[in-house]
Structures are given as structure tokens and as C-alpha cells.
Amino acid sequence: MWKTVLRRVLVMIPQLLILSFLVFVLAKMMPGDPFTGQINPNLDPKQIIRLKHELGLYDPVPVQYTRWLVNLFHGDLGQSYIQKVPVTSLIADRAVNTFWLSLLTTVLTYVLAVPMGIIAGRHQDEWQDQGIQIFNYITFAIPGFVFYILGIWLFGFVLGWFPITGSVSASASGFWEVVGSRFYHMVLPALLFSLITTTSIVQYLRTGIVDNKVEDYVRTARSKGVPENVVFDKHILRNSLLPIAAFMGTTITDLLGGSMIIESVFSYPGMGKLFLDSISERDYTTLTALILLFGILTLVGNLLSDIIMSIIDPRIRIQ
């Protein structure tokens, strides 16, 4: 198995190289540059051209890409054009925020989705199931940002329970106070985000239970005299839950995608917001670095899913 994992990791390298090249070229094809919209009347246009020359922005794209790649191998992701700080430290700050938000979202997602899926599957077509289905249709049909804005309006403005921007209160001091404040800032976005991400897990679990219920091996278990509640827990539920565990790997992708919207709506300083900002500001170095990171995380997530799957399902073995 470890050989396969190693092979999969090695295969990821060319995948990432191709990805980074495409992203680099696409970014360069976008109209404008880091100085668009920042025309400082005190700055001589010649000065800007000189600056751009210094930064190598007039070199042919392949030359710029090669330079970026060589630097990458030296562990240098470059300087952010806009923030004037190394990209690595810029991302590191934001990554921590996104990590905690994602973790809380994941926990809430599973805490909500698993019981909902079980109830829906167990009481298939009864009122409990129908209620959950309606909830699912709503969260599925409403676009994320509309849902978030509604949430902000209700919980932030009308009820005033939660803060609606930022990741930490400026007035917080001391370790526990900061931690508390950070958590307080995360609750609303994580909760709203998780309500959106539960949909697929609830559906998946419900379908798994409904399908497993009528499998022959469940009938076999009953024919052995196994009581019905044990048949449900030990055979039906267990076999339906295990594939859900493998979902954890692919949630990484969902979380990264979703973080862009949720972080923008909440002005939460995470990687998703950084990504959108770096696009609008033509911050190529930050943008390519982030894409590379997202790419790695997605591939690692998929690999993780496969590994989890092969551990829990004896029929799937990666040799």
C-alpha cells in the first residue's frame, strides 16, 4: 500500500507542474497588471515602467515562468506585489484562519449531517424524512451567498447574536480572550457554511441506508434471529456510514471552493478571500502560489479518500 501511496505522490508532481504552468499563463493573459488602478498621481509613468522592468514583468511569459519555478525549488514563492511581503508568510497567516474555520465547519457538518441522514434513511418516506428532504432542497437550491447574507441579516443585524466581519475582535487581549473571540467570530460563518455542505452527506447517507435496507445480507441477518435494532445498527448503518468516512478527503475540495464565498461575505481574512483579492489585484505571485497550494490540497484530499476507503472497505485494496 505504501508503494502505491508513494507512486501516487510522485504522479502528483507532473500534475502540479502542468497546473501551475496553466495558471501562470492564464494569469498573465488577464488584462491589467499589479499597478492597474493604483496610478499614483505623484508617480511618474516612466517610473512605473522602470519598476515593471525591474520586477521582470516585461520578460516573455516562459522566462517569467521558469524564473518562478526555479525560485519555487529554492523554497521562495516570491514577494506579493501588493502587500510587499513574502507570499509564504502572507499565506501562512491566512491559512491558519482558513484551517480553523474549515475544521469547525467540518465538525458541524458531520454533527448535523450524520443524524439527519440516519433519521431520513431510517424513516424513509415518513414525515421525518420528508422534513429533512425539504430542508435539503432549500439549502441545495438557494445560492450560497444569498443564504449567507440572509444569515448575516438575521443573526447579525436583527438578532445581533454574532459579529459579522473579521476573525478576531481588535480589543481582545490575552490568550484565552483571543481564542474566545476568534471562536465567536467563526461560529456564524461555520454554521451557515456547514448547513450548505450537509446536503450531499445527508443525501449520500440516506441513499446508502435505503439501499442497504433491501440488500440480501440484511435479510440473512434477520434470518439468523438478529433483533431488528441490531440489524439496523450493526449491518445497515455500519455499511452505510463507512463510505461517508471516505468523504472526509474530498470535503477538503468543497471547503476550499466554498471558503472563497463565505470568507468574502464575512470579510474573514482567510485563503479564500486572499485568492479572490489576488485575482482582482493581479497579484500574480500570490495567485499562483495559492493555486498551487489548492491543487496540492485537492490531490492530497483525493488520495486521502482512497486510502480511507481502502482501509474500511476490504473489497478495495490498493497494493
Binding site: E215, T220, S223, G225, P227, N239, D313, R315
Partner: peptide
Amino acid sequence: NESLFNKIRGDKIGMIFQDPLASLNPLM
């Protein structure tokens, strides 16, 4: 009633099904 029947099923009456692959739990 089911709880009485569960004492009989598997103990006094054994059952063999058609498709042995489908009638075994794949994850056990």
C-alpha cells in the same frame, strides 16, 4: 410477535439463500 420469532429464526429454523455473495455482509 417479532421477539419470539427472533428466538426461533436461526435457532430452530435455518435459512439458505440463492446468491451466496449477496447474502453475506461484504464488510464483515
